[in-house]
Design a protein around this nucleic acid. Structure first.
Lengths: 259, 259
DNA sequence: CCATGCGTACCGCTGAGTGGGACGGTGGCC
DNA sequence: GGCCACCGTCCCACTCAGCGGTACGCATGG
């Protein structure tokens, strides 16, 4: 069997993780053979693993196919990084949406990417490239840059070393300019995304800090380029992020706080 | 090692599931020894499993302790039963919250319990016994009874056979009265919870149907007994549930639709 | 009517997983 | 201050859980 793609040792758990990771936003159901193909497992192995995963509730039988099970949703809702932040942030996010009449995002950093923890959309919202539980490269998003600006140097280094992948013509892909922008964000406490993650989408973002003074995530106001004046939104986002940080017990000293 | 507690065979996956299930709403971080104790695994086994789970992102290292990882949140957000329903329901839930100025719940049936998929709270909301991703016995909640009323007979039987556990003095714990109430709900399309899940908490709920005509979940308006007039809320909840069902492609025939 | 691909089932081999045990560090109670 | 209980970590020999090649019955469709 081909195991070369897994760096370490292909343990049962790694195989099971590969099975679950075979599903995606547009891949909600898979048959056994398709599962085996995507994971590189033998068909009989995929069959047995799927059966076992169904028995523990991580997969659900859908006819002869299989899909992610509710137990995973339940577990996911218990993830503390997400839960504590979302719970504390929700009221402020709703205020922010009402005040700005724009989409509001809450995200955390996971490795070198941001994961969206909550999204409040406005009624007439155009489609956005973000999804709750979805990932985007940190350097190509407003919240990502806000978080990176207040993260330890090795985190920024990891992001740069992994390659500043281009997502649009405006994505910052050079280390130098990115570092300079992060310095500016540290001064102003505000980060902008000017069509850097998706064409036509702009946002203003600000970092959220925890009780230990370290950055926990980012808050942003997002909208279409032709409708949203990011500079006008900046004070509102920053205020919401500061208020949220204060409620989380963050030691906010001056205008801009660094870790 | 003690494996008698697991019915089938204690596969690696079952052990890993036990490790993850050791965490809960109030148990966000665990040490290795505590983990071993709660799962009944040998300490060295718990240690190795935890290490492997960390490597695949299902757990996170928190100092020497360990907690659920962001990867589980990401996976959980992909669960189709939850995602499709929540996405379609959100706008209607917001309308419902605004119209009734009360907490709005969306839940699905998982086995014999309901799992809350989304909760919209009002500003001054008193604490509720519900949590997104949390479980409650189906027979003791408004949404649960709404779903049971339109579920196949064997589902209702399973719920009754598992025991109608009492949660408050008002919980329906006798099979006969429960069956009669479900019949009433089938007629009216409305289900009530009068302090049956928690003292002081009442709700009005209605079932949500999918394109195949089967019940997908339940929608409810919830509040404190002294402030919420459930009968006055009933038409709003039922309307929202019907509108949502129609958008989901449900074949709604008459005033009340059954599967 | 055969080719193809599906889900399912069986079964012998083997190395991944197991857990007992040991070890060093640490915190608190006496 | 010194004892002790408990912690996380690591090692290692045994064994059975997991693996995948193989085969079968069944749709589908060309």
């Amino acid at each position: 069997m081909r195991t070369a793609e897994w760096d370490g040792g292909p343990s049962v758990l790694a195989r099971a993780a590969a099975v679950l990771d075979a599903f995606g936003a547009d891949t909600t159901e898979l048959g056994i053979s398709e599962l085996a193909r995507r994971t590189g497992l033998a068909k009989s192995t995929a069959h047995r693993l799927a059966g076992e995963l169904v028995r523990i509730g991580w997969l659900e039988q859908a006819g002869t196919k299989v899909r992610l099970g509710m137990h995973l949703f339940e577990l996911g809702q218990l993830v503390p990084r997400q839960r504590a932040l979302r719970e504390a942030a929700l009221p402020f996010m709703e205020d922010l949406r009402e005040a700005t009449n724009s989409n509001v995002h809450l995200a955390v950093l996971e490795g070198i990417e941001v994961v969206y923890v909550e999204i409040l959309r406005v009624r007439d919202s155009q489609p956005l490239p973000s999804r709750v539980g979805g990932r985007l490269p940190a350097h190509a998003t407003g919240v990502g840059k806000a978080i990176l600006a207040f993260s330890p140097a090795d985190v920024v280094k990891a992001r740069i070393d992994a390659g500043l992948t281009r997502r649009t013509a405006y994505t910052v892909i050079m280390p130098g300019p990115l570092m300079r922008e992060l310095a500016t964000i540290r001064e102003s406490g505000i980060s902008y995304d000017r069509q850097e993650s998706a064409m036509g989408v702009v946002c203003a973002a600000a970092p959220v800090f925890g009780a230990d003074g370290r950055v926990l995530g980012g808050l942003s106001v997002t909208g279409r380029a032709e409708r949203l004046d990011t500079e006008r939104m900046a004070p509102a986002v920053r205020t919401a992020a500061l208020t949220l940080s204060r409620q989380l017990g963050a030691p906010l000293r001056r205008a801009s706080t660094r870790s």
